[in-house]
């Protein structure tokens, strides 16, 4: 393969995102689009929480405890008289931020290791792959609880734990993308014309790995939201008076029989967000899947 061809095959990041109708194909999937819209709307609303709600998330009015839905408190109040809707809006920030932390951590952990495994091959690859396999067999939530049990409760610890657990998935995607590209002749061509490894990485490997990584990132976000919910529900995640969706839910359980609204609202929000990230991931996968076939 000659240099011109190699230049054609190696696409910049931007072209990858816009090229080949992947975006068009994504737009033609109503479920995935709806999911994306939901994620964007929820994120915006949560970021704007201080502007949207007159109530603080951490202080309540003791006279107003455990009220049902009303015009003043659309979702009622909790056991210390805090507005549930406000706590959910602020809590969404914590939930999303925690998910981003966990996902970011698994990317930082998984992607470089995956690329190293692909490039180095041999025993390095074997070792890293075995460690990834080993981590993957362990139940994620349990590992997170154990890690928290040792390091003490707290959301950051929890999310580092989740990041460790999901790192191997990103490792696999990055490794596969790296291997796929390494076998292409244009990489050899790029090497012979003296491209630096960094340039090869940026121009050839990342664009190829981007779509599958996006899929995996989206799916990991979903699991991280679930994990945050579970841990905060158990009281092992965010600590009071901090709010998160899981914390709101967990706190409302004792009064659930008389005041089910907060439990249902928080549960529905978590479920929808998880569903959205899952559908988003599926949607991205389908957009690239078809591209490969055609």
């Amino acid at each position: 393969m000659n240099v011109t061809a190699s230049r054609e095959r190696g696409r910049g990041l931007r072209q990858t995102l816009t090229r080949g109708g992947g975006v068009d194909r994504f737009r033609r999937q109503p479920l995935a689009v709806a999911a994306l819209v939901f994620v964007v709307v929820i994120t915006t609303v949560c970021i704007l929480a201080p502007l949207l709600t007159p109530y603080p998330f951490d202080r309540g009015v003791l006279a107003d405890t455990l009220q049902g839905p009303s015009a003043r408190h659309p979702l009622g109040t909790d056991d210390v008289g805090r507005d549930v809707l406000s706590r959910l809006l602020y809590g969404g920030r914590t939930t999303l931020l925690a998910a981003v932390q966990a996902t970011g951590f698994s990317v930082i952990l998984g992607v470089p290791a995956g690329l190293i495994a692909a490039f180095a091959g041999g025993w390095v690859d074997a070792c890293l792959s075995r460690v990834a396999d080993a981590i993957m067999t362990f139940p994620a939530l349990l590992l997170a609880v154990v890690i928290i049990g040792i390091t003490g409760p707290g959301l950051t610890n929890a999310m580092i734990a989740i990041g460790v657990v999901y790192g191997p998935r990103l490792f696999r995607v990055a490794r596969a993308a790296g291997l796929a590209v390494l076998n292409e002749t244009y990489i050899a061509a790029a090497k012979t014309v003296g491209c630096s490894p960094l340039r090869i990485l940026m121009r050839h490997i990342l664009p190829n790995a981007l779509s599958p990584l996006l899929v995996q990132v989206s799916l990991t976000m979903a699991t991280a939201v679930l994990a945050e919910g579970s841990l905060s529900f158990l009281g092992l995640g965010v600590q009071p008076p901090q709010s998160s969706w899981g914390a709101v839910l967990g706190r409302s359980v004792p009064q659930m029989s008389q005041h089910p609204v907060p439990v249902i609202a928080a549960g529905v929000l978590i479920s929808l967000l998880v569903l959205s990230f899952n559908l988003l991931g599926d949607g991205i996968r389908d957009s690239i899947g078809r591209e490969r076939k055609s």
């Binding site: 979903a222 679930l226 919910g229 579970s230 529900f233 839910l249 967990g250 359980v253 659930m256 029989s257 089910p260 439990v263 249902i264 549960g267 529905v268 978590i270 479920s271 929808l272 998880v274 569903l275 899952n278 559908l279 599926d282």
Partner: peptide
């Protein structure tokens, strides 16, 4: 199925308790 995958265990459990038990 895609709904079921997204539903958190704790939410499913609480809804079952709410409806079938309480």
């Amino acid at each position: 199925a895609s709904l079921g995958v997204a539903l958190p265990d704790f939410f499913v459990g609480l809804v079952l308790v709410l409806v079938l038990a309480l």
